[in-house]
Design a protein around this nucleic acid. Sequence first.
DNA 1: TTGCTCCTCACGTCACGTGAGGTGGC
DNA 2: TTGCTCCTCACGTCACGTGAGGTGGC
Lengths: 259, 259
Amino acid sequence: MFGIGEFARAGRVSVRMLRHYDAIGLLRPARIHAGTGYRSYEAAQLADLNRIVALKELGFTLEQVRSIVADKVSIEELRGMLRLRRAEVAEQIAADTARLTHIEARLESIEREGFLLVGDVVIKRIPAVRVAELTGTAADFAPEFIGPVVGPLFGELVERLGDAVRGQPIAYYEDCPEGVLVHAAAPVDFTENTVYLPEIEQAATIVHHGSMDAVIPTLQALAHWIDANGYRSLGYNRELYLECGPEFVTELQEPVIAR
Amino acid sequence: MFGIGEFARAGRVSVRMLRHYDAIGLLRPARIHAGTGYRSYEAAQLADLNRIVALKELGFTLEQVRSIVADKVSIEELRGMLRLRRAEVAEQIAADTARLTHIEARLESIEREGFLLVGDVVIKRIPAVRVAELTGTAADFAPEFIGPVVGPLFGELVERLGDAVRGQPIAYYEDCPEGVLVHAAAPVDFTENTVYLPEIEQAATIVHHGSMDAVIPTLQALAHWIDANGYRSLGYNRELYLECGPEFVTELQEPVIAR
DNA sequence: TTGCTCCTCACGTCACGTGAGGTGGC
DNA sequence: TTGCTCCTCACGTCACGTGAGGTGGC
């Protein structure tokens, strides 16, 4: 027979853990002294403790461990639990690997620039949205070509839609023979004469402050981040107009995929 | 200005999170309506929120995020924090990779044997210990050769040491010209005429029940586990005698390293 | 008597999720 | 008036760690 301290040392667990496992009925001491409440464990219980520790190591919760050691789950359920865990752990590893890349990109930027410029860019999922839109063409992607086209388009769009607009206006772009096809869009509830903007699974997003004439440095920062953090661009970015008053605030959303 | 719901959707966070960040002073709404307590956010605050989300994504706690966004940490501290995080994440990935291997070994064993034999084997660190010991030689590793040697050795050792024994007896083995050098050891406090058994960083351990004459299947299970779970043996196992009464209970400890 | 081991509460952890119960503005 | 959005508590989560305050056996 072992005292709780001895048994804890043998099993490389804490005394508190053994008390906890007792409390939740996962591993009861072989004997409890009536007068003092002292717990005693048998050597053979070390195998039970090992089984618990091993299942915990696989990442099961104590509740799941209890079901398994109490033999309450069928082999089929167990297979399912293991497969689920496998998927969860694989996902965890993928997320942590991305995290590691991001941390290293930040460290490199500190070495290079001597300060931390963090958090400008965030990866988000952009849900699908139904919009009404007007289009025009511009000769080039430069802000001085886009601005005169997109401005009047939004003016007319908002005038026509009135209070049917359901969210922030969106601009997006495509290549076309004349140069660039400019879309000025606004979310709406109805479906006639509308366009369905599909979801973007992963968008690298950055918030731009002030006039779109000065968007170039922000776009460059975004492009640099995408490269440094192990992503690849999948096309032109969308622009979400968060504020159109005197102080423009825009979110640039560029579809990306992990390299 | 955005209501809390709108702002949460724009930032892909929950309303509850925004309230939490307000409560801990991490991101205060631009305005709070005096009468109703309604929170209002400015578009420009989305950049602040993004910064918070990005730092959280790197794995910092909200307390650390607050220090960083409030610019309370020097560039040197920040570099240190990032390096620490890098190490933590790398360790996490290593642990999860091992976990994944263990899960897959379990799944394979289910496919092969139709049942789950889990938790027999656990990886533990075995701390160093100072022992008094006696040695003898045996012709072979088979239990029928070891038994007659180790038994009398332990008998004499315990007789000589009396109550100076400080823990469970330990047996361990080495190759020698005559066959096997058998060590029968017991932990003691004093240092004269003692041997220092070094720590085993990683030991694959299994609990054996009953006579050591029947240890072969247990040793085979251990060897199989070591192979199936991506480890490699580093030498002979130690035997820790947990119970020597009528029912023997032994822990076999085999030093291993990840392949 | 002094250490040592053990005991039972019970709070703290971390970042929110999830009701409960209620209010303000269209 | 009916939805919708918003509000403030306050408990729950998960597996223990960490005291506080006290007791039993050598």
